[in-house]
């Protein structure tokens, strides 16, 4: 190969609709893994803070494993790892489980920090007004935690999109997987991946923009 490389963009543009669809799949799996991650992360944070014995151990182990091993390793675990026990997940579920596991671990630490940063005096004040513990959390604690963890949560969503590209290594046809599929059929590897890079960039910017807009609506104080 040398400088006389001829770029061929036509096939890429022909498959652009397919790539954009795959981009939707990427967004979908990322968003779904965030939803699961938020619920599990909140649980993990609460158990790590207030749990006892083996519950606490499980939560801590989960969090530390998610944060201290490569995301690809976590994906492999849900792929080959579970395969060792005769459980064979479809590629979509491998990616979804891997991302959710990872999101939950990172978000748990964010939530823990957020929960700890709401002073106990806020809870006292709410209780002294006759609010029950649930009402206190719903009206006083959670809204304040949400503001603190909002930015890290946005970052995690971006990470989830970027991480989902690992789907291509376990045969999942999200944006990267689809790109690889087309690239290997046409041998226009550079062109395909260049366009995909642009698509990722756009997706990330859309997420950040939407997040900023929402923050502006939500947090007026």
């Amino acid at each position: 190969m040398s400088f006389d490389y001829n770029f061929h963009w036509r096939p890429v543009f022909k498959s652009l609709p397919d790539l954009i669809w795959a981009g939707m799949t990427t967004l979908q799996v990322a968003a779904l893994s965030m939803l699961i991650g938020i619920v599990l992360g909140l649980l993990l944070a609460l158990v790590r803070m207030h749990g006892h014995g083996s519950y606490r151990w499980v939560a801590t182990t989960w969090i530390e494993l998610a944060r201290n091993t490569p995301a690809l390793f976590q994906l492999f675990f849900f792929g080959f790892g579970l395969g060792a026990f005769g459980i064979h997940l479809a590629p979509f579920y491998i990616v979804l489980c891997g991302l959710s596991f990872n999101n939950a671990g990172y978000l748990a630490e964010n939530f823990r920090g957020g929960l700890q940063s709401v002073p106990h005096t806020q809870v006292r004040a709410a209780r002294s007004l006759g609010m029950g513990i649930v009402r206190t959390y719903v009206s006083i604690v959670v809204p304040q935690v949400l503001r603190i963890v909002y930015h890290p949560m946005t970052n995690q969503m971006v990470w989830a999109v970027l991480m989902s590209s690992l789907g291509m290594l376990v045969g999942f046809r999200e944006l990267s997987g689809e790109t690889q599929f087309f690239a290997s059929r046409t041998f226009r590897i550079f062109e395909y991946f260049a366009v995909t890079a642009v698509l990722y960039y756009i997706i990330v910017k859309i997420i950040l923009g939407a997040s900023r807009l929402l923050a502006w609506r939500l947090f007026r104080y």
């Binding site: 002073p119 006292r124 004040a125």
Partner: peptide, 14 residues
């Protein structure tokens, strides 16, 4: 029993 605390703990998000 209304109560007012030493630390100002108005709810900052409201």
């Amino acid at each position: 029993l209304g109560m007012v605390f030493q630390q100002w703990n108005s709810f900052p998000h409201l």
